[in-house]
Amino acid sequence: MIPRDDTSGPRASSREILRADGLRMFYGSREALKGLSFSLGSGRVLGFLGPNGAGKTTAIRILTTILEPSSGSFAVDGVGSSDPQTIRRKIGVLPESLGFTKSNTALEHLTYFGQLYGRGAKEAQTRAQALVQEVGLEQRAKSPIGTYSRGMRQRLGIARALVNDPVVVFLDEPTLGLDPRGQKELLALVHRIPLERNASIILCSHLLSEIEGVCDEVVILSSGEVVASGTVNDVVRQARSNAMQADGIRVRVPSASVSKACQLLESLPEVGAAVPLRGVVGWVGITMVESDDGTPRDQHDNNMILDALIRADIAVLSFQAEVARLQDAFLHLTEEAIR
């Protein structure tokens, strides 16, 4: 996973590059998007999260000018949504469905798209060559796309999204269907875009670890509504303040030892409660007792929990000491919205 860096380089820039105000979309009488508003700074990476049918694709299609919103507006780099032609010159998109012509080579495909952005044939070809190098496809640049692996196609899709030097790049499920190595390589490529090009990114993904690792900010949608937005830490904190289970300390023991472990841990003075987690066999959720002045407890308390379990000869199969994770926030917030 690529570490998130909130402060370094261009990603700390604050120039507003994308702003959405009250975007709404109706399909007949069904409201698919209920007033989406957010803004994105230059060089920042925004994660778009939401369960299936939350309105993510509709939101992305509106922001990429493929769909016209029923109401509301947005602006990309100062260009209002009433001028979609100019917006298209400023954005790059990796759609979920890549739609390559299999008989084309990567060079032919990128040259074609360069020409569609108004470049002359030679200039587009030169640009295509630079892009295939940038995404690491130079060895197979003259092979038909039909012979490419899924990962290579995704990289070509990213090259296509960069063909016009966009200020915002929309990536819809870029790692879908890739093996772990392919995911890692692609995320490394995505991570380089804001750093090297100072372009902002909107990343749609179902892989929360991916969002957590790459994004500076996150917008969580559920049933067409924004249920949380802000930096990843803000969203997690917001979810936790809405009464999440435990502090996030979890320990996994053999299922036969769960009740024994709960009893043992609850007997410790630093532990407020230790309960088996629902739906996940063998996991015990632990809530620590808050200190008198309300400050967080010492990190060494984690060691104390492990020590107690080991002394009681209870096998520790897994241990998660994170305070809370985006996944918890996501599940909690979207579940709450559905209720």
Binding site: T64, T65, I66, R88, P95, F113, L116, G118
Partner: peptide, 8 residues
């Protein structure tokens, strides 16, 4: 088609 429609 989507890729083509995304161009200006």
């Amino acid at each position: 088609l989507e890729a083509l429609l995304l161009t200006p």
